[in-house]
C-alpha cells in the first residue's frame, strides 16, 4: 500500500517536472500581451491565437516550417535510400570488417554535427550550395543516416532470415523477397524510425543556423526572429517547435519503445 502510494507520488512528481514547463510555454503563448505583463495575474482570463498567427504569418514562421519539412524529408529520403541497403548487408551477410564498419558508423554519432558546421559552410560556398535547403538536408543526413543504418539493421535482424529464404525458395529473387516478405514485416518499425529521424532534423538548430541566411528552417528562423521579440513570441515559437514532435511521439511511442529495445509486454 505504502509502496504503491510512493510509486504514485514519484510518478506525479516526474510528470510535473516534465509537464510544467510545457504547460507554461503553451499557456504563455496563448496569453494576450496586456495580461502577460500584468504582474498580478498568473493564469490569463482569456486566450488568444494572435501571437501564433503573427509568428506564422508576419514573421515568416510558415515558410520556415515548410523549409523544415522539406529538409527533414530530403534527409530522411537520402538516409533510407542508402541506409536500408547498408542495414540489410550488415544484418544478412557475413563479410570481413563487418564489426569495424558497425563501430565506425556508431562512432560518427559521437561527433556533434556542430563540429562539421563551419567546415561544411566553406565547402558549401565553394560548390555553391550554401544557404540552400539541400545543403542543410545533407548536413542533417550525416546525423540521420548512421541512426537509420543502425536502427534498421536491428529491425531487419528482428525478422527471421528464414522468412526471406522461404520467399527465395518459393520463387522470388533476393530483392523481391526482401520487398515482398521482409518489407511488410519491418515497415512499422521503419516508419517509427523515420519519424524519429524527422524529429532529429526538426529539432536541429545549430548547423541549420550556420549554413543558411535566407532559407532558414524553423528552429534557425526562431533563433533569429523570435529571440529579439517580446517574451510571448518566444513562447509561441516554443509551442510551434514542441507540438509536432509531441504529436509524432504520441502516435509512435509504442514503436519507439521497442526500437530502443524496451519491451512493453
Amino acid at each position: 500500500m505504502i509502496k504503491k502510494a510512493l510509486t504514485l507520488l514519484i510518478a506525479i512528481l516526474i510528470a510535473f517536472w516534465f509537464l510544467t514547463p510545457i504547460v507554461l510555454i503553451v499557456l504563455s503563448s496563448l496569453t494576450p500581451s496586456a495580461e502577460y505583463y500584468d504582474p498580478h495575474r498568473i493564469l490569463p482570463r482569456s486566450l488568444t491565437l494572435n501571437h501564433l498567427r503573427s509568428l506564422f504569418v508576419t514573421l515568416g514562421g510558415w515558410r520556415a516550417t515548410l523549409n523544415s519539412i522539406q529538409v527533414a524529408g530530403i534527409s530522411i529520403g537520402i538516409s533510407f535510400l542508402f541506409g536500408l541497403p547498408a542495414a540489410y548487408a550488415l544484418t544478412r551477410f557475413v563479410f570481413r570488417g563487418k564489426n569495424s564498419i558497425r563501430l565506425a558508423i556508431l562512432l560518427t554519432r559521437s561527433f556533434p554535427v556542430l563540429i562539421i558546421g563551419i567546415p561544411l559552410l566553406t565547402l558549401y560556398m565553394r560548390i555553391g550550395i550554401s544557404d540552400t535547403l539541400l545543403g542543410v538536408a545533407l548536413a542533417h543526413t550525416s546525423m540521420v543516416l548512421p541512426f537509420v543504418v543502425l536502427i534498421s539493421s536491428s529491425i531487419i535482424g528482428g525478422i527471421s532470415v528464414e522468412y526471406e529464404e522461404a520467399g527465395m525458395i518459393f520463387g522470388l529473387s533476393r530483392f523481391a523477397s526482401f520487398m515482398r516478405i521482409t518489407m511488410p514485416l519491418v515497415l512499422p518499425g521503419l516508419a517509427a524510425s523515420a519519424i524519429f529521424a524527422f524529429i532529429m532534423s526538426w529539432n536541429e538548430v545549430f548547423v541549420a543556423a550556420i549554413l543558411t541566411v535566407g532559407n532558414r528552417t524553423l528552429p534557425a528562423h526562431i533563433l533569429n526572429a523570435a529571440m529579439t521579440a517580446p517574451d510571448y513570441f518566444k513562447f509561441a515559437a516554443g509551442t510551434i517547435m514542441a507540438v509536432p514532435a509531441m504529436i509524432f511521439i504520441f502516435f509512435t511511442r509504442k514503436y519507439l519503445m521497442s526500437l530502443w529495445g524496451i519491451s512493453l509486454k
Partner: peptide, 10 residues
C-alpha cells in the same frame, strides 16, 4: 521447396 526448421510461415 523447403520446410524450414522454424517453419517460416509468413
Amino acid at each position: 521447396s523447403m520446410v524450414f526448421q522454424s517453419y517460416a510461415v509468413w
